[in-house]
Design a binder for these strands. Structure first.
Length: 125
RNA sequence: GCGGAUGGCCGGAUGGCCGCGGAGCUCACGCUUCGAGGAAAGUCCGGACUCCACAAGGCAACGGUGCCGGGUAACGCCCGGCCGGGGAAACCCGAGGGAAAGCGCCACAGAGAUCAGACCGCUUCGGCCUGCCGGAGCAAGGGUGAAACGGUGGGGUAAGAGCCCACCGCGCCGCUGGCAACAGGGGUGGCACGGCAAGCCCCACCGGGAGCAAUGCCAAAUAGGAACCCCGCAUGGGCCGCCUUGGCCCGGGGUUCGGGUCGGCAGCCAGAGCGGCCGGGUAACCGGUCGCCCAGAGGAAUGGCCAUCCACGGGGGAAACCCCGGGACAGAAUCCGGCUUACAGGCCGUCCGCGCAU
């Protein structure tokens, strides 16, 4: 079909689906912010950024959990294509209360800081 | 207008920018369109649909249902009625078959709790100076209790008692109305049959099991299986009694096949569908006709930000208005019919009582 030229998309976001991927991220680097926790792991040297979302029962009922995941998804869509590093897996973990109610602009800034923190530590193994 | 009863409905609105999932169109960029609920919830009933089991059916066991009639695919649901209870009324509440088939239980209190019974009493006779003691009769009154072998009134009597009578209640037998549950009324019996079946049980009716992670199809890598072909050149073992030749099995290589895991597709959304109108029915509901397409994901879309308005709360102001806060319960997962539970605020109707006016 359209195999003639690869599209000009530099990075594409993919969703984490396997439990093992989530566990691997949880064992790697973390950066805690008021409204979420960022977990990150270097996977391979390709140009794919993968992202997963976690909202446990501590966050609240199904409505709260869904809303938390949606806000995290919107956040990732805004920030990660530019600020994320290809070849890495990220997991955003929702926190009870704050993920749903924290101002969105503040969460954006927090995510940028969290990414910087994770990659700074990662650059000096 | 006030107070009460009851039946429905809504569940923030509109727009902009950036996104997400499905479908359609397109070579493609992309465009169009649709995209949570009344409970999507609890998973408590009833089905559809799959697979498994099974002649039909009967019996037993287990579970469920339980006034009558109707509705429905079906129901433990809904509608209408009956009976009992509550309320001044509108209306509300009720697991509401059978206790003369049988077993069991009825605590405490009380003399006595189902073979009724005699504590205080009442009447009378005898002893006897009254008190008191003993005998006989009685069960009306008191007391206990959730319940005391009918209730009220009268007659009767030594005192009493369905002992007798009237009415009520109860049992039995006709009659009338009703499809029926049942109601009304008549005759008769002569008080005899207490409650619990939500303790067991009896009777009638219903029920095979598991569930969409059901089930069906396609189908990698790796390992293992089967069939066929080739090799037996190098090395080894077994068999055709032994040796040569040859053959077979183990062995090595290849092809094909079937099972099967990851994965993919189907099941998976046009249906016991929704809305309008007409007709039948008190109603639940049914029939006809016209119109509509109304989520289908699969680690799971329905989101982020902004503006204006609408409820609501707080503050300021004489007011118009301004500022700040702020949106009930809750998120589809095979699909329907119900039930139950949660729910800020608001809207519309019907009925009852009181007040005012006529």
């Amino acid at each position: 079909m359209t195999t003639d030229t690869p599209p000009a998309v530099s990075v594409c976001l993919e969703t984490l689906k396997k439990r093992a991927d989530f566990l691997a991220c949880a064992r790697a680097r973390k950066a805690a912010m008021p409204a979420f926790v960022l977990q990150a792991r270097q996977r391979e040297a390709d140009d794919v950024i993968r992202i997963g979302y976690t909202a446990s029962k501590k966050v609240g009922n199904a409505v709260s959990r869904n809303r938390a995941k949606r806000r995290l998804r919107a956040l990732a869509r805004d920030i990660l294509p530019n600020a994320g590093v290809p070849g890495w897996d990220y997991v955003l973990v929702a926190r009870a209360g704050a993920t749903v109610s924290h101002p969105f602009d503040a969460m954006k800034k927090d995510l940028l800081r969290a990414l910087a923190k994770v990659h700074q530590r990662g650059s000096a193994p």
